[in-house]
Amino acid sequence: MHAIRNINLCTKDCLCLYVCPTGATDTETGQIDASRCLDGCRICIDACPSHAISLIPAAFPAQQRKTDTVKKTLLSLAESKVKQEQIAAYIEKNTDNPVLKQLAQVLCISNQLMAEDLIRESGYMLPQSQNVQDFLKLLLDTDQPEGFPKEVVERLLAILNLENLDQTE
C-alpha cells in the first residue's frame, strides 16, 4: 500500500512534508515517491488539511462476478454506441460546416464515454483484474490486425502486477 496525492486538491500546505518519516512526500513531480512510502503508514493522510492524499492498495480483491447474460446485453448496447461514435467521427471529419463539426465532435465523445462505461461494467472495471489479464492474453493468442503492437501488450502483462491479484474471480 502506498500514498498518492491528488494534485488537483493539494493546496501546498506542506504538512505532509513535515510529518513523513522518509521524505517520500517531498518530490518535484507533485507525486509521492512510492518506493520510499512505508506500507500503510498514512501519517501524511491524517495530517493533510486538504484531504489530498489517499492510499492505494498494492493488491486488489477479486472483482464482482458478471453473469454471461449481463455481459452480453451490455456489450450489445456498447456496440451500438460504438457505431454511433464512428458515424459521428465520420461526420466530424467530412463536414465543412463548423457548427455541425462541433456537434458531431460532442456526439462522438459522448457515445465513446457511454461505450466505455458499458464495457467496463461487463467485467473490466479494474485494470489489474483477472478478466483484463485474460483479455490481454487473448490478444496475444489470436490473430490481430496488421501492425498490432505486440510489445505493448507484453509490457502491460509484465508490469500490471497481475500476480498480486486474488485469483478466485
Binding site: 454471461d68 456489450l75 456498447a78 460504438v82 464495457i119 483479455f135 487473448l138 489470436t142
Partner: peptide, 14 residues
C-alpha cells in the same frame, strides 16, 4: 464467449 466477440471499436473503448 463475449471477449472474442468484441469488435475493434469495443476493444478500443475498453
Amino acid at each position: 464467449n463475449s471477449m472474442s466477440e468484441l469488435s475493434f471499436g469495443e476493444v478500443s473503448a475498453l
